[in-house]
Amino acid sequence: MGRLRSDLWCMAFVRRHNDLGNMCVLARRGDPIAGQVFIEIDHLDGTRSLFTPAPMLSAGDGAGLVFQRRFSHVDPLKVRDRINQETEFDPDLWVISLDMRGDDPGIDIVEPR
């Protein structure tokens, strides 16, 4: 079985977090089939974190989307600059914006080696 479409994955993620009481929206729509997904978390304390797709080597066989933590609790401008830089390079990028106080957005995360 192939990977889930980006649009379906994003819609499910947004709905799940909104059902949990976290404000979650699509900040940017990308390619519906294979666009990369970035998740921006506003921790509601003046800091943000950014999760980006992990390298394919870390996904393993049959895995869904796997992310890496690019930034953790940094200035919001740093996150915004990174997203802007990536959208210039890849206009098919999806960006999900999530407001939550915790650090666990409920995604598969690999730690850098």
Rank of each mutant, 00 (worst) to 15 (best):
R3G: 13
R3Q: 14
L4K: 07
S6W: 04
S6K: 01
D7K: 04
D7G: 03
W9C: 01
C10V: 14
C10H: 02
C10K: 01
M11L: 13
M11H: 11
A12K: 07
A12S: 12
V14M: 12
R15P: 09
H17T: 05
N18K: 12
D19N: 11
D19Y: 11
L20T: 10
G21R: 08
G21Q: 08
M23T: 14
M23Q: 12
C24N: 02
A27L: 03
R28G: 01
R28F: 05
R28L: 09
R28C: 06
R29M: 09
R29E: 10
G30C: 01
D31M: 02
D31T: 05
D31F: 03
D31Q: 06
I33A: 08
I33K: 03
I33M: 11
G35R: 00
V37F: 01
F38Q: 00
F38H: 04
F38E: 00
I39G: 00
I39V: 11
I39D: 00
D42H: 06
H43Q: 05
G46D: 10
G46W: 14
G46Q: 10
G46N: 09
R48V: 06
S49M: 02
S49K: 02
F51S: 03
F51V: 04
T52G: 05
P53I: 01
A54G: 11
A54R: 02
P55N: 12
L57G: 15
G60L: 07
D61W: 14
D61S: 13
G62F: 11
A63K: 07
A63Q: 12
G64S: 14
G64R: 08
G64M: 08
L65K: 07
L65W: 15
V66Q: 02
F67D: 03
F67V: 07
Q68L: 07
R69I: 09
R70F: 04
F71W: 10
H73W: 13
H73N: 15
L77I: 09
K78F: 09
K78S: 07
V79F: 03
V79E: 02
R82A: 04
R82K: 15
R82N: 07
N84T: 10
N84W: 10
Q85E: 15
E86R: 03
E86N: 10
E88F: 02
E88S: 08
F89V: 13
F89L: 13
D92P: 01
D92N: 12
L93N: 01
W94R: 01
W94F: 13
V95D: 00
V95S: 05
V95A: 04
V95N: 02
V95I: 12
I96Q: 03
S97L: 12
S97I: 05
S97M: 13
L98Q: 00
D99R: 08
M100I: 13
M100Y: 04
M100P: 00
R101L: 15
G102S: 12
D103K: 09
D103L: 15
D103V: 14
P105C: 06
P105R: 00
G106K: 07
G106E: 08
I107W: 14
I107E: 11
E111V: 13
E111K: 13
P112G: 09
